[in-house]
Amino acid sequence: MRYRLRALGPVALVLCLWQLAMMTGTSPTGHSASPVQVVMAFAELCGTGMPPGYRLHWHVLYSLWRVSAGVLLAVALGGALGLALGASRRLHATLMPLVDFVRPIPPLAWIPVAIVWFGIGFGSAAFLIFLGAFFPVLLGTCSGVLGVDSGLVEAVRAMGGGRSDIWLKVLLPGAMPSILTGVRLGMGIGWMTLVAAEFTGVRQGYGLGYMIMSARDLQRFDMVVAGMAAIGFTGLSMEWTLGRVYRRLLRWQ
């Protein structure tokens, strides 16, 4: 708790400097917004909404839903493939070149493909977020399994443990720190992909990315910044919530 309070210091400092810069006219108004304006825009987003009638909490919920769906899918598929690649040297040698080929292609470059495949809507947004989160989860899981001490596997084998015992009692818990790091990174990239995914991939009127783009179209820079802050807060609270889970799973470290 004290650590979180301490984190407020830098935040307050940045806000003060920002406000000061706006009030002394160091930064041209009209193309940027002061913290106070942003807070007011935030209130307006909560009350009236952007576009009017589309209120902030719905934007947050829709985005959360898309990010969660994309990341969960990435954890399921990336995790499964990562376990397989970590366990089988032959599979690793066969598939890793393909993985390394697809990996550097940015999720944004997939937008046209996503729209063709999934149409405009939830499917393509979730797909783009999935693409962003998939590879960190995959690599984290794979290297986690590879990094498990082979002596531990032998120990369980010597005690009469079978294949499933080795997976459930050694490889999975042993790989867990690395898997969770992959999930964390994946979630971060998932949020980063969100705005772009919702920018082009959504026509429903909800989503933080969509909200930011609507605000931009109306020259409401204060609302753009408030939307950015909303993404930051949502990501942060997700991280803090999951942080508890992580710490519980990794208590032994």
């Binding site: 531990l152 369980v156 084998r157 010597a158 005690m159 009469g160 818990p173």
Partner: peptide, 18 residues
């Protein structure tokens, strides 16, 4: 192995850290 007739201790067969 499946009879589990043996208990084994060595430097390599470590405890599970978790």
């Amino acid at each position: 192995l499946s009879r589990k007739a043996i208990g084994m201790v060595s430097q390599e067969l470590a405890l599970l850290p978790w």
